[in-house]
Design a protein around this nucleic acid. Structure first.
Lengths: 331, 331
DNA sequence: CTGTTAGCGCTTTCAT
DNA sequence: ATGAAAGCGCTAACAG
């Protein structure tokens, strides 16, 4: 590996001082056109590229970077949120370093980014002690599930009230028997299925006396489709189904097609997330929409506050974003 | 804004020298447990966090970062590729800093990342002089359209042969009259529509004598749906349609539903991209699949080569990835 | 217009 | 086990 070309080498070749090289390369004026030309040539000849670390080290206004750990790039919910965060971050002058927790796990992702960013943002599901260790003391903004750690802030979604409102509205629309499809997500990290918070809210809010028609499926379109078929087989009387997320709900709509069940006439299907993708099915998916733009904006409010305090210790900030019912066609 | 807490401050508070602090914080041994403890406490008390720039500046093995400029996070093609690239990059020890060209434009995105990354990867459509200026001398790997610039390498997709094979196969399946839906993408940057390369290949390969049934639509699901309806209205005899990309093709399948046209019996619909999303419609979308994993892997081959040459000048590398026909249900 | 000096904040020698 | 000195590569502030 050839030794790195530094500003010094360029200066030597051009026969000037390092400072002059710096002037030429940064369009700083106070330099004669001729010298500038010579420097630029020398620089090009050597293939010189300034060290970003040195440059940032000396810069007054440090560039700030946030690490965004995405659970999966296969699920459009995360990519849509990534897009919103990227946009919001750019407008506020933040760089975004992304990592997917999918292949190596989020702990590895955190570890890898720990020396490169000023703050973390993401959905984290690993056990807290592991997170605590991997983060390397860097402040974190947790996106959905509340995590109770030092230097950890959160932007939560009040899903409970969203689900409450959804159940009320479905009933107002005439639904008499509402079932649910839950994600088997917990199985990825633990050997035994644990009901998701969404399911817990659902069961709590549907009322104690009612029978609970819930089926668990894989978190994908086909998983949703299969789960829907299974659910309707077991509970033919259902006239509404709340689905863990839009991806699975899209599958559920397809499952209904396959069964010859009319949506929403025979069964209303309601997703959670509010993906743009929900427009892709017929009928378009009704959903409990999580406002991702607001989520991203709040997350950036937090990191901006952190930056203002120079990333020092701070009392945890906690924002709550309320979901909004989006009635398209399927419910 | 409080002055930054440096290693010096920690050293002062703990009553030791800076290197001792460094030792304590980096688990370097050669330090008494007691001192270490004291340093750690001081560090925690002050909320000290090492400067990532200083740390990297002095590090022997520099962390390498690549900037990935995504045209849009709304189009799953890009997010899927982003996911593959992220995964591939992580496994090879690269950080990925992402930026979307959507809001501020890709030139702005390049400019913003120029001082933070060692190489760029992305789909770039801006005029070359602008790219050249915005990149700040940083080597680039262009993903699809060939760009001819210094320090610019490319991973191309041989779409021409993919389209050729597609047309042959469609004909072998009995298609007699093949139309196409093109993207209006060029309208975003220029006031006048310019046929996409995909369309040019199509028209060239469909044969000179045949009438060309092509319609232009917006690059989205609904855009594809509308374009399909328009296309079939104008050319009712069509029995196969090649669509600019899968997103629009999904819309086309829906448009067919709306028109009561049977897919693939009456009209075969073939997309381009190979999105996993193509499974979400009925019938599942047949498509000219671009192998995104391979694309990502080749891109990383290039940047690895660049890194091996310490990002010095290099002869342009050019990889070509061949697409593969993926027959699902719609064609 | 150009060069010299002095750091940015950290880690690595090398002493002690 | 700890400290002093040197320097990573760059730019800001001053000279001239």
């Amino acid at each position: 590996m050839a030794k790195r070309v530094t500003i010094h080498d360029v200066a030597a070749l051009a026969g000037v001082s390092r400072q002059t090289v710096s002037r030429a390369l940064n369009d700083m004026g106070e330099i004669s056109g001729e010298t500038k030309q010579r420097v630029l040539e020398a620089s090009a000849k050597l293939g010189y590229r300034p060290s970003r670390f040195a440059r940032n080290l000396v810069a007054r206004k440090k560039t700030r970077a946030l690490g965004f750990v995405v659970a999966s790039f296969r699920n459009p919910y995360y990519t849509e949120i990534a897009g919103d965060l990227l946009e919001c971050a750019a407008s506020r002058g933040w760089q975004v370093v992304m990592a997917s927790g999918e292949s190596e796990g989020e702990v590895a992702a955190l570890h890898m980014l720990a020396s490169q960013v000023d703050a973390f943002v993401g959905h984290f599901m690993s056990p807290e002690p592991q997170l605590e260790k991997a983060r390397g003391g860097i402040p974190m903004v947790v996106l959905e599930p509340p995590v109770r750690l030092r230097r950890t802030h959160s932007v939560e979604v009040d899903l409970r009230s969203g689900i409450e409102e959804a159940i009320q509205s479905l009933r107002a629309k005439g639904a008499r028997s509402i079932g649910m499809i839950d994600s088997d997500h917990s199985l990825r990290s633990s050997p035994v299925y644990v009901p998701s918070p969404r399911r817990r809210f659902f069961e709590e809010l549907i009322g104690p006396s009612r029978p609970k028609a819930v089926v668990v499926g894989e978190e994908s379109i086909t998983g949703g489709s299969r789960a829907f078929v299974e659910l309707l087989r077991a509970h033919p009387h259902l006239d509404a189904v709340l689905v863990f997320n839009d991806l699975m709900a899209i599958g559920a709509v397809q499952g209904a097609h396959a069964l010859g069940v009319k949506v929403p006439d025979q069964v209303r299907i309601l997703g959670i997330d509010g993906l743009g993708l929900g427009e892709a099915v017929h009928p378009a998916l009704s959903t409990i929409s999580l406002d991702r733009q607001a989520l991203a904006a709040r997350a950036l409010d937090v990191v901006d506050a952190l930056a203002a305090a120079d990333f020092g210790e701070m009392a945890p900030i906690r924002y709550v974003v309320r979901p909004r019912l989006l009635w398209r066609g399927s419910a």
